[in-house]
């Protein structure tokens, strides 16, 4: 029992369960899933589908944070990726052509790799602090995205491209499979090879790691590139989901949601340790919370306050110091009146 409490996934899972339970009481058919034109349809599926891009970005962010870094530019990369893909497709003659969509996806993936490499290069070789290095692209990225879309919303009518964010495979949204595949690959690479250990070691102490023969710079550049890639794919999913690219709003504040997801998942911003599964659950908690707020009809004026309150509670519950204090308070509580009574008897 004690072991279960101490497992790093216990609290994130408990919070997710509590949120789902709340929904169950609030609207009993929350868990209903029906089949509709070969798709599964229901609130849970919506959470997975809309949460997929966030999970993806958060996975990339986890690795960056594990090296004691941070990537603020993911939201902008999401916007750039969506803009570039939609622009490429809208220029094509036959928008449904598989080759066109594939080349758009390939171009976008390549660009996201490059943007990630740019971040990694700034952090690893020029020694700029990660928060500043990635801030550059965060600010400039929205401008680049608007340059690509020339300030317009680009609408595409390609069923092939639409499949990425809206299609269904085995009755489940296709985006879930993309996320699951990347999650599996990353877990295998980091937990079954020495790569995970290298990343954690660089996060603990890049100097010492270099001295024992780990190529710190290469590791750092690689994780930023991977983070860029995740953000790029998330951008593809998001833009294909609404069949349009919006340079200004796509992925707005995504970096903050992703960092929050990583922290809720139990990874420390100090680096040196990371929990991928925790991150996935953290991202799902955030998406469940958003969906819950929409479903129970919180007035839009106070939505953010409600969200902040829940996040605060989540963070407090997760904090071991806070938990211990509460428990201690409770254990050492004294009841002077009671004691006196018992003494007289």
């Amino acid at each position: 029992m004690n072991r279960m409490f101490r497992h790093h996934l216990f609290w994130p899972l408990a919070i997710l369960a509590a949120l789902l339970l709340f929904n169950l009481f609030y609207s009993p058919d929350f868990f209903n899933i029906v089949m509709r034109n070969g798709h599964m349809y229901g609130s849970l599926i919506d959470i997975l589908n809309f949460g997929a891009p966030l999970v993806l970005v958060a996975i990339g962010m986890t690795l960056v944070i594990a090296t004691k870094g941070i990537d603020l530019s993911v939201g902008s990369i999401v916007a750039i990726a969506g803009a570039l893909a939609c622009l490429t497709i809208s220029r094509g003659t036959d928008q449904n052509a598989l080759s066109l969509v594939l080349s758009a996806v390939g171009l976008t993936v390549g660009l996201s790799f490059f943007l990630g490499a740019w971040n990694g290069f700034l952090v690893a070789t020029t020694g700029i602090q990660p928060i500043i290095a990635t801030l550059i692209l965060m600010v400039a990225g929205r401008g680049i995205a608007q340059l690509i879309t020339s300030g317009q919303i680009i609408t595409v009518t390609s069923d092939t491209y639409n499949y990425i964010g809206n299609g269904a495979l085995a009755a489940l949204p296709f985006s879930i499979f993309i996320v699951a595949a990347i999650y599996l690959i990353v877990s295998l690479l980091t937990r079954k090879t020495a790569l995970g250990l290298f990343i954690e070691s660089v996060g603990c102490n890049p100097q010492a790691s270099r001295l024992i023969g780990i190529r710190s710079r290469l590791i750092i550049i690689t994780v930023y590139m991977f983070c860029g890639l995740c953000a790029g794919i998330a951008g593809l999913i998001l833009s294909s989901n609404v069949a349009s690219a919006d340079g200004n709003n796509a992925g707005l504040w995504y970096e903050l949601d992703a960092i929050l997801a990583v922290v809720i998942g139990g990874t420390s911003l100090n680096g040196g340790r990371f929990y991928l599964t925790g991150t996935v659950i953290g991202a799902l908690i955030i998406q469940t919370l958003t969906t819950t707020i929409y479903m129970i009809g919180v007035p839009p004026e106070i939505t953010l306050v409600v969200k902040a309150f829940v996040v605060l509670t989540v963070c407090l519950i997760q904090s071991e110091v806070f938990r211990k204090k509460v428990v201690q308070r409770w254990k050492t509580r004294r009841y002077p009146a009671e004691r006196e009574v018992s003494r007289h008897v």
Partner: peptide, 11 residues
């Protein structure tokens, strides 16, 4: 925005 409109309508 379109993305938000879709998400909220779905809920």
């Amino acid at each position: 925005t379109r993305a938000k409109g879709k998400e909220v309508m779905q809920a």
